[in-house]
């Protein structure tokens, strides 16, 4: 069964690249340019993984994450953060807030695929 992945990023080129790489790897990819659009898709589609950029217009990645985690319906969706910050500190906050992984920009196609595959492998292994 193909997994559904939602990517939220305000950069079209990033969305385009991530979509391409993940589609080639066999995933179904949904794209959103901001938090509102992302939440709408989360509610309408069955999403297996959310790739969330931190720097978003209006509602940023942290806020959106909190909204997801406080929503009974949505809180089971695993979230992996995408960011250009280099900071280990951000990473710790992200993981504390409930992110399952943390992918630093710039990333290569191989890296992205491997991280996403790893997340699904880990979740299946632990029956999450």
């Amino acid at each position: 069964m193909n997994k559904n992945i939602l990517v939220v990023d305000d950069e079209d080129d990033i969305l385009d690249f991530v979509e391409r790489v993940l589609k080639d790897a066999g995933y179904i990819v949904f794209k959103a340019k901001d938090a509102k659009e992302g939440l709408a898709i989360l509610r309408s589609e069955k999403i297996d993984l959310l790739l969330l950029d931190i720097m978003l217009p209006e509602i940023d990645g942290w806020q959106m994450m909190q909204m997801i985690k406080s929503d009974e319906e949505l809180k089971k969706v695993p979230v992996a953060m995408l960011t250009a910050r280099v900071d280990a500190y951000d990473k710790i906050i992200g993981l504390k807030e409930g992110a399952v992984d943390y992918i630093c920009k710039p990333f290569t196609a191989d890296e992205l695929c491997k991280r996403v595959n790893d997340i699904f492998y880990y979740m299946e292994k632990n029956n999450l």
Binding site: E11, I14, F17, R20, K105, P106, F107, A109, D110
Partner: peptide
């Protein structure tokens, strides 16, 4: 620096993808 990094992600990603013949 942060703003510069975002366009780099797309560029590097595509170059890498192209180089791999995908």
């Amino acid at each position: 620096s942060h703003e510069l990094r975002t366009p780099l992600t797309a560029s590097l990603g595509y170059v890498d993808y192209l180089e791999k013949g995908k």
